[in-house]
Simulated assay, not measured.
Amino acid sequence: MVETVAKIPEKFTYLQAATVPLTLTTAAVGLFADAPSGAGLNPTWDPKVQYVGQSAFIVGGSASVGIFVVAQICGQVNIVYDAVFSPEGQAAGYAALVDNGHLLSVRATPDAYVPKDVDDMFGKILYEKLGGLLEKGTLVPLRIEELPGGWRALWEAQSEVG
């Protein structure tokens, strides 16, 4: 197995960069991987690809995965991406979906189809382009707040209160 590593631009800390891989990959597979795993929007990450006239409804757009969905795409919608998986959100999204649209969710069901080669080619392309996307500001890491004393200090403070 060949691992592809993205270069972290110097303007980001290691902790900021650590917010990207899992949440971005989850968002990207839903948007860009070929159907039925995703909407197949732009699996090569070609910056010239545009989606004029299409719309999306993002349930949980402020969630960690949802933020990366909102960074990628700007009545009824062509794509519903449920970044939090709530029954109410999925029902609202399904009601807004056009015929032959894509309803995507972060929650895999037991019968979900995930092709075995999704990680190989799709992940390789994604991580080859990731450093440039971060450098240009097309994608940015999630906002973080470093805790003085780290998690141990938070745990100890919570133990004292509770």
Rank of each mutant, 00 (worst) to 15 (best):
A6K: 05
K7G: 00
K7C: 02
P9E: 07
K11D: 03
K11N: 03
T13A: 03
Y14N: 10
L22W: 02
L22R: 09
T23C: 13
L24F: 15
G30T: 05
L31K: 01
F32I: 00
F32K: 04
A33N: 04
D34F: 00
A35I: 06
P36L: 09
G38A: 07
A39F: 02
L41H: 03
L41V: 06
W45F: 15
P47N: 03
K48F: 00
V49R: 15
V49D: 12
Y51L: 14
V52P: 01
V52S: 10
Q54W: 01
S55F: 10
S55A: 14
A56E: 05
I58Q: 04
V59R: 00
S62H: 09
A63G: 15
V65P: 08
V69L: 13
V69P: 10
V69F: 03
Q72A: 14
Q72E: 14
C74P: 03
Q76R: 10
N78C: 01
Y81L: 06
D82T: 03
A83T: 02
A83Q: 00
F85D: 15
S86N: 03
A92L: 07
A92V: 00
Y94S: 11
A96Q: 09
D99K: 10
N100A: 11
N100K: 12
G101P: 05
H102C: 08
H102M: 11
L104F: 08
A108Y: 14
T109E: 15
P110W: 02
D111N: 08
A112F: 07
K116S: 15
D117S: 10
D119N: 15
D120F: 14
D120H: 15
M121V: 10
G123D: 11
L126C: 07
E128N: 09
K136L: 04
G137Q: 02
L139R: 05
V140H: 07
V140D: 06
P141S: 06
L142M: 14
L142I: 10
I144N: 08
E146W: 01
L154R: 04
W155Y: 14
W155T: 13
A157H: 02
A157D: 11
Q158C: 09
Q158R: 12
E160I: 03
E160Q: 09
V161F: 12
G162N: 00
